[in-house]
Nucleic acid binder design. Structure first.
Lengths: 157, 157
DNA sequence: GAGATGTAGTTGTATATACAATTATCGTCT
DNA sequence: AGACGATAATTGTATATACAACTACATCTC
């Protein structure tokens, strides 16, 4: 993997980014972990994103799209399309709310079943991920998310 | 945000996923942090992914696509398309390597300039991200990535 | 109550991501 | 030399993601 470099000299700042950039690390780690979960979930016909949404919707009961966006820090247009796909699969049902602008999403029985059947696979992925991050890493992650919600870094949309 | 739930009872396991899932948290956090960096970088005409690739390529010197995939845990087809876009921008140059199958990527002067000009914006985003994660969080993140590379969770492609 | 302002969701467009299949090349073995 | 298996990259297809623009509805203000 280490290759002979034809020009070893380049700005110090670039080296700094390479060594310290939080986004690089976080994105890299997320790619790896996402792959882990998706591979576990694939036989269940679910992606980790879809599972996220099903779980959030289950917890919220009848949820407005914006509520789900808020808890997942998801952009509204992203969710809109995710929901499209999941409605096509009949995992989510859309009802119009009292306010003519809003709608309410609800997990269908089929969606709930799909989710439940995926739990064992999730558990396996979760164990591997836990091993990879270590207990302190997981704890730090939890704290960061709590902070994020508290500080309310404006969520998109 | 807390809404009246029409059905408060649903499987315990689902609650468990909601409260503990590492993928949910990591992805959520990554969405937020990615947004942070992208907003900072947008005036410089760079995305965080593109910056990642420029930095990796700069550090490696002449890099084979697979080398970049390896250090960033990126799937080869993903990189292939990212590189396409960046070649169109003239930030990367592709030369054919000695082996007829491989190619070598090199950051062009234009690419290097674009990257350097983006550093101040990066620095601002980095500070905010650091604040958000806290020093322990950042340290844990660093450790996790080091571990990931050590344990060599097979990278894709 | 009509127009201004604001909010919820969808649609247009682009990037980022990955898996599967394909293409092109390489190396080896006979 | 030719066949076969391995490797590097590209291409086909689908999901995930976000910003900007738009649509439809609501609320506020005068």
């Amino acid at each position: 993997m280490k290759r002979k470099s034809t020009r070893e000299s380049f700005p110090t700042a670039v080296r700094l980014v390479a060594e310290e950039c939080i986004a690089v690390r976080l994105r890299l780690l997320t790619r790896a972990i996402t792959r882990l979960y998706n591979q576990a979930l694939r036989p269940q016909g679910l992606t980790v994103s879809q599972m996220n949404i099903l779980v959030a919707a289950s917890c919220l009961g009848e949820a407005r799209p914006q509520d789900i966006c808020h808890v997942l820090h998801l952009e509204k247009s992203t969710l809109s399309r995710d929901v499209d796909r999941m409605r096509r699969q009949r995992w989510l049902n859309k009802k119009s709310g009292e306010d003519g602008r809003t709608s309410l999403l609800e997990v269908t029985p089929a969606g709930a079943k799909r989710l439940e059947k995926a739990i064992p696979a999730w558990r396996r992925a979760q164990e591997e991920a836990h091993l990879l991050l270590g207990e302190p890493g997981c704890a730090a992650l939890g704290r960061a998310v709590t902070d994020l919600r508290k500080k309310g870094l404006r969520d998109p949309g």
